[in-house]
Design a protein around this nucleic acid. Sequence first.
RNA 1: CGGGGCGUAGCUCAGCUUGGUAGAGCGCUUGCUUCGGGAGCAAGAGGUCGCAGGUUCGAAUCCUGUCGCCCCGACCA
Length: 569
Amino acid sequence: MRLSRFPLSTTKETPSDAEVVSHQLLLRAGFIRKLGAGLYTWLPIGLRVLKKVENIVREEMDRAGALEVLMPTVQPAELWQESGRWEVMGAEMLRLKDRHKNDFCYAPTAEEVITFHVRQDIRSYRQLPVNYYQIQTKFRDERRPRFGLMRGREFLMKDAYSFHMDADDLSREYYNMREAYIRVFTRLGADFRAVQADSGNIGGAMSEEFHILANSGEDLLAVAEGGTYAANVEAAECKPGGSRAAASAALERVSTPDQKTCEQVSKFLNVPLTGKVKLLVVRAAEGQPHKLIAIALRGDHQLNEIKAGKHPKIASPLTLANPEDVQAAFGCETGYLGPVNCPIPLIADHAAAAVADFVCGANENDHHLKGANWGRDAAEPEVADLRMIAEGDPSPDGVGTIKFYRGIEGGHVFQLGKKYSKAMNLTVLDAQGQAVTPEMGCYGIGVSRLVAAVLEQRHDANGMIWPDSIAPFRVIVCPIGMDKSEAVKTAAEQLYADLTAAGVEVALDDRGQRPGSMFADADLIGIPHRVVIGDKGLANAQFEYKHRRADKAEMIPATAEAVLEKLRG
RNA sequence: CGGGGCGUAGCUCAGCUUGGUAGAGCGCUUGCUUCGGGAGCAAGAGGUCGCAGGUUCGAAUCCUGUCGCCCCGACCA
């Protein structure tokens, strides 16, 4: 490609409304332009990268045996009403009406549509298993689109849906997809982790997310140092620790005026946070004897709202009680709650239940209790895993110690089970002629998000640093004084022709720019290999070669073969 | 959805407090010089000041409404 006919619109200035590096660079380098909140146009150079990511995903899905289809982005409401999600999905689903006033949505995902088609076409166990995928635009009306491509509203996604006669075959395909994802992320040149995940409201059992590690990531990951365990903190289990020590202290009521937080009380009474038990009050699930329920946590621990929300006695999604209701139930402010004489049902986290001689609120304003003990001062509590895992905790699988990382979710694999096949009456006949409801899996990759996520890892002060696999061009040829020197012009044109003939994607910077701006653009758009051709080098029959990551350039023979050698190496 | 902020040239922003001829830098056009890390000089083009009302002799500036966008929080296959 000749850059004289491939306009780059790069800027020196960083757009003010771009927060994260990837968003800044994508705008500065002219890869994308904003059309509205969470809506971006891909310009020619950016689209080249997006298409390459898309093709890597396509190749690996094909290699894994999945079959590509293309479904409409506008879907009839009836299908969503069948699955029940027309009501469940909130404002994040964009709803439309056609001229006949019929309801539609702009696809946020496609479980319903694919299940509908499989119901039409698949009748026999002989036709299963099958795994259909598409690479298609999705729209989710996020409450708060942000970070450019990382959380856009319209985005490009690869979504795959598999159908199986039984759970074992679903499990087999799940691991098949997992392997395909590992190949995709590896080819993108990304530092990534597959982590255990919460399956959210899409439903299902087994689920893992693929995260690209980056400080700007929106998710927090618990990864075992010295082990293999990795989980999104939302999903990370906490195993019960050691047994509780025997009670040794007497119960004592102490005055703690205006000491409402655990930190304040801990400091005021000079006891460690780990020796305190705190109480949170949340709404109880429907049908529970009391509308509120108390959760006891150790002072240094945080509530895991996802795990707690799944507890059968706790309302889902987890909802904190409002302060008036707490006041009415306990007769004191929220800063002084404790398990001793707790007026409502209580569930304790494992760790909170393992503390002896603890400090807690006295259920009376401005007072706490010291030396409190389960089984003596407070009833032995029901225990559950309710807390957020913490850095330094032992890994739940017993190997290693937990350290936190931030990650950008680039892919997600789920075992859905029968949630949609059942809701939408999908059945096939098995070998005995019996109707069976197939098991489903679903597997997503955020294709456009991956472009930004890779960039979060691969950049420096001068701009982007693409791996060869997804770079907009592999090589950029920068001729110095092309319009002055016939020798430079000839050599540049020859190299351009030779590399092109060799099947290398090469950009020839024939715009007649000064060297400084050529180099600045080449660095900003992140082309991995750069060849500079100037009269000085040509006098010695040499080109100058530099890898985008290298500190310095080196001289190589002035031949296409020498350049190709560098690309191989 | 709650809180905060911003809409002025293609881009980044100043001007608004205290109403009176609409500005700068970058980019763009032309010419000359320059040519190995975003060149210099000179000339030039380019703006319904988001939109709609209102106050006023006069509104980018003050008031009301409205739309859009950004940030923090809550939320999120």
